[in-house]
Design a protein around this nucleic acid. Structure first.
Lengths: 138, 138
DNA sequence: ATAGGTGCAAACGGTTTGCAAATAG
DNA sequence: CTATTTGCAAACCGTTTGCACCTAT
């Protein structure tokens, strides 16, 4: 039984082949994909799953902590496979690959912000853009 | 002549009362507003401006560097008044007020990222959430 | 006079939803 | 057997667009 099926069972949801296949696309691609793009990839793998199920399942995976969502540059939702809890994403502008990054030395930043502007930081969202190791070498 | 009218002239665009009024709403509110919310505020100020003009003007202001856009939590576009070029936003969870923040000590972060994962950071997007000075004191 | 702006209504397109049939447990 | 999931088609709703009229220069 796959890791995703286990998580589904833990939460009292049904583990289905449809869900496995959708999660597999995210896991294999590791880049931000729109529901439409996920659907296309499923079709190209020979899995005929409806677009509405793709929408529903992607939201489910976000709820399970298996995927993260954001709005892409055209305002569409995009989803990426996710493994750890609090982290940020480094998006390669060349190949689109998304790497996970720990948030690191933000405590100092938070302290300066409090001293300078009186703003009490509680949370943060960071996205980094650049070139991944593979694409830099090319 | 207002600052916005000047900028419009510099870019060869017409300065209109409609545009002044839309920009004034952003300037007075200083929080993220959807086109719909801007429209409502205009109406409550007695200005009957069409929603499509609000959409067009907000995008225009972004192009002029007078406003910044993002997708809100519901996937809708939201706009905020903006004065300086490269900066980030600290959003107060209590009153919604948006403050501008300089990006500060991210060079060290970028260096660590390159050393650890080989990722060459070229750009970054940061949003901070918390409580502004006024709301913290309450 | 003319290039550019605005309002209106219709079109567009991503996303959600209601419901009957299919499937997991 | 029962609760959940899925596919389909329609509805939804934020956003864009075409066009006639209006306004700034």
């Amino acid at each position: 039984m796959s890791e995703i099926s286990e998580t589904l069972h833990e939460r009292g949801r049904y583990a289905t082949r449809t869900r496995e296949r959708i999660a597999a696309v995210l896991r294999d691609e590791r880049r931000y994909l729109t529901p439409h793009a996920v659907h296309e990839l499923l079709l190209s793998r020979g899995a005929s799953i409806s677009l509405s199920t793709v929408y529903r399942t992607l939201e489910l995976l976000v709820g399970l902590g298996i995927a993260a969502a954001r709005s892409d540059e055209h305002g569409q939702n995009a989803y990426v496979f996710c493994t750890v809890q609090h982290h940020h994403h480094a998006v390669c502008r060349s190949c689109g690959r998304v790497e996970e990054v720990r948030c690191g030395p933000l405590e100092r930043f938070a302290r300066d912000l409090r001293n300078d502007q009186g703003f009490e930081m509680e949370d943060h969202a960071i996205e980094l853009y650049g070139r991944c190791a593979d694409c830099t070498q090319r």
